[in-house]
């Protein structure tokens, strides 16, 4: 388990999927998160077990809405 995971600010997310493609381990998937009247899908961490916390997704995000959140208790 990584000591950091990506957290998405959905209200500002473009739903562009760049982070999903950028992830080298296919940890992110697009899914409904219930905030959009157009039925858009947004990135969610579908495979937290394989996330290394590398931050590539956050770096790739064109609109800078992903932050890497430190997980308490994970070395």
């Amino acid at each position: 388990m990584a000591n950091k995971i990506p957290v998405v600010e959905y209200s500002l997310c473009a739903a562009c999927g760049v982070c999903v493609t950028a992830c080298p381990f296919s940890c992110l998937e697009l899914s409904k998160v219930g905030i959009d009247r157009y039925n858009k899908v947004y990135p969610v961490l579908a495979s937290p077990g394989t996330c290394t916390g590398c931050g590539i997704c956050a770096k790739a995000c064109p609109v800078e809405v992903i932050t890497m959140q430190v997980l308490a208790g994970v070395p």
Binding site: A14, A15, C16, G17, V18, T21, L30, K32, D36, Y38, N39, K40, V41, P62
Partner: peptide
Amino acid sequence: VEKQKYHCYGCAIGCGG
């Protein structure tokens, strides 16, 4: 019958579904 939108890679418009 559109279940969800579909965006091509890097798209902020999302014309697909």
